[in-house]
Simulated scan of single mutants.
Amino acid sequence: MDMSYLHHAGSAFATIFVVATCTMRTMIPLRVFGIMANVLLIAISIPTHNYPTMALHAVLLPLNIYRLRQMLQLVQDVKKSVNSDLSMEWLKPFMTKRPCKAGEILFYKDEKAEDMFYIVSGRYRLVESGIELPVGAIVGELGMLSPTNERTQTLECIEPGMVLSVSYSQVEELYVQNPEFGFFFLRLASARLFENIDKLEARLMKQDAPALPMAPQHA
């Protein structure tokens, strides 16, 4: 077989794949087409002895596969959280550690919101509602959904501990890369909002419940 013909034909197909990746707006199809282009260019490079091209795409291929697997796993974890315990463990790889001291205010009501927090240890309280947040809870996501991006409550640390933080811009990047992630993230955040509302209503009902009359004391 004419190697020059094979080279030109393969290069033409590879160019089509590369151009297609430029038209992709989301990360998963972009990675899929990138993998296909890597495999094709490696296959072309072997018979034509184009070793630099082969080496380049031999490096890019596992990277594209890893990123694709990472994004698919992220979407799967978000779906699982929506259908189970509303956990946001899947966000931890994208977050940074922040130690907190007792009495420290992590954010104030009505201030501009730029990040959300995952509670690793310690005790924290939403001041206005009096709700204490357990370890494993995420807080601050509502500011991202608010039209004004403002905090709806004040968060205070009442016992030293550690939180993980992630900026809204990082979450937005994940959404742009994969709209399916964004859809399930909104469902998850909405479910957590309704859960918080139910907790607050239950607490108000408990506070408003009339006290039972005490039984008369007999000497």
Score class of each variant (00 low, 15 high):
residue 55 A to S: 11
residue 55 A to M: 06
residue 55 A to C: 08
residue 56 L to H: 14
residue 57 H to L: 04
residue 57 H to Y: 11
residue 57 H to C: 03
residue 57 H to P: 02
residue 57 H to I: 02
residue 58 A to V: 07
residue 58 A to K: 10
residue 58 A to N: 12
residue 59 V to W: 01
residue 59 V to I: 06
residue 59 V to C: 03
residue 60 L to A: 09
residue 60 L to D: 05
residue 60 L to E: 08
residue 60 L to S: 06
residue 61 L to F: 05
residue 61 L to T: 00
residue 62 P to T: 05
residue 62 P to G: 06
residue 62 P to A: 07
residue 63 L to E: 00
residue 63 L to Q: 05
residue 63 L to A: 06
residue 63 L to V: 10
residue 64 N to M: 13
residue 65 I to C: 06
residue 65 I to D: 01
residue 65 I to L: 10
residue 66 Y to S: 11
residue 66 Y to D: 11
residue 67 R to P: 03
residue 67 R to Q: 08
residue 67 R to L: 05
residue 67 R to T: 04
residue 68 L to W: 09
residue 68 L to P: 13
residue 69 R to F: 06
residue 69 R to Q: 11
residue 69 R to P: 05
residue 70 Q to I: 00
residue 70 Q to P: 00
residue 70 Q to F: 00
residue 70 Q to E: 03
residue 71 M to F: 02
residue 72 L to Q: 14
residue 73 Q to L: 13
residue 73 Q to Y: 06
residue 73 Q to W: 06
residue 74 L to I: 00
residue 74 L to C: 01
residue 75 V to G: 09
residue 76 Q to D: 12
residue 76 Q to T: 08
residue 76 Q to W: 10
residue 77 D to H: 08
residue 77 D to V: 00
residue 77 D to F: 01
residue 79 K to S: 07
residue 79 K to R: 14
residue 79 K to D: 07
residue 79 K to W: 03
residue 80 K to I: 01
residue 80 K to Q: 07
residue 81 S to K: 13
residue 81 S to R: 13
residue 82 V to E: 08
residue 82 V to H: 02
residue 82 V to Y: 08
residue 83 N to K: 09
residue 84 S to K: 08
residue 84 S to H: 09
residue 84 S to Y: 03
residue 84 S to M: 03
residue 84 S to C: 09
residue 85 D to E: 03
residue 85 D to W: 01
residue 86 L to G: 05
residue 87 S to I: 10
residue 87 S to G: 12
residue 87 S to D: 05
residue 88 M to F: 09
residue 88 M to K: 07
residue 89 E to D: 14
residue 89 E to P: 04
residue 90 W to N: 04
residue 90 W to P: 01
residue 90 W to M: 14
residue 90 W to R: 05
residue 90 W to D: 05
residue 90 W to V: 10
residue 91 L to D: 00
residue 91 L to W: 00
residue 91 L to K: 04
residue 91 L to R: 03
residue 91 L to C: 06
residue 91 L to N: 00
residue 92 K to W: 00
residue 92 K to V: 07
residue 93 P to N: 10
residue 93 P to K: 10
residue 93 P to A: 09
residue 94 F to V: 03
residue 94 F to N: 11
residue 94 F to S: 12
residue 95 M to F: 12
residue 95 M to E: 13
residue 95 M to Q: 13
residue 95 M to H: 12
residue 95 M to S: 15
residue 96 T to M: 15
residue 96 T to Q: 15
residue 96 T to H: 15
residue 96 T to W: 14
residue 97 K to R: 12
residue 99 P to K: 02
residue 99 P to V: 10
residue 100 C to M: 14
residue 100 C to H: 06
residue 100 C to D: 06
residue 100 C to W: 08
